[in-house]
């Protein structure tokens, strides 16, 4: 027998459970807050956003390069320019990310159950390195010949080279334009959502009563 009023709040429903936990952990006010704790006042906070922005420029320029194919930029001035945008946004991305990483280290920003933020961040760092590396291999120029020749020995020496074949342009290209960006994008989204969910970590001595007001 069907009842007119179906119980939708049943905690044993997967969908309901997901919605409830989402609403509890990441309500829209947390996702898009218009205030921040008073201590969020330092230039270091800008570097996460700068990293994110550089990633956006990388993806935008990369999409244009992908539409034209990997050897377009060898023969076209416009291609060379888009390639330059891609190249420099990557350099900026890594610069911002490394400052961000060191900043978060010196803030011990994993405190207060924020370990997952650090872990997703550092995985993003590693995946970024892999993505950039495969990008260098898909330049289809002398540099990629050289890097493929040199790097194969490293990967072969521990057996990874049997599957991750740096001399295989097709594989590297797919890794670079499909698989790795997908992983990096996903990890970045999780990383940023973690930050929003937990709120920005308080300063190291914020709750140490013994130090409060000593200088006042």
């Amino acid at each position: 027998m069907m009842s007119n009023k179906i119980e939708t709040q049943k905690p044993d429903m997967w969908t309901a459970r997901l919605r409830q936990s989402w609403q509890k952990n990441l309500p829209i006010e947390k996702l898009l807050p218009d205030t921040q704790p008073a201590y969020v006042a330092s230039w270091i906070y800008v570097f996460g956003v700068l990293t994110l922005s550089a990633l956006a420029v990388i993806i935008a320029s990369g999409v244009v390069l992908a539409f034209e194919g990997p050897s377009w930029y060898h023969i076209s001035d416009a291609g060379r320019f888009v390639n330059s945008l891609h190249f420099w946004s990557v350099q900026l991305f890594f610069f911002f990310m490394v400052v961000h990483l060191w900043g978060k280290f010196w803030m011990a920003a994993w405190r207060g159950k924020r370990q997952a933020t650090w872990i997703t961040g550092s995985i993003a760092f590693v995946v970024s390195i892999a993505t950039a590396f495969t990008g260098y291999l898909t330049q289809t120029n002398f540099d990629s010949q050289w890097i493929a020749f040199e790097a194969k020995d490293g990967f072969n020496s521990v057996g990874i080279g049997a599957w991750f074949t740096v001399t295989n342009l097709g594989q590297m290209l797919l890794m670079h334009v499909a698989f790795l960006p997908l992983v990096l994008g996903l990890i970045t989204v999780i990383h940023v959502l973690q930050v929003r969910r937990k709120g920005v970590v308080p300063p190291i001595d914020a709750f140490d009563q013994t130090l409060k007001g000593v200088n006042k």
Partner: peptide, 18 residues
């Protein structure tokens, strides 16, 4: 180094050195 990163906060709250 955190004292430099959060300088403003440490100053306004008057948090002393460890």
């Amino acid at each position: 180094l955190h004292r430099a990163i959060w300088r403003q906060y440490y100053q306004t709250e008057g948090i002393g050195k460890r």
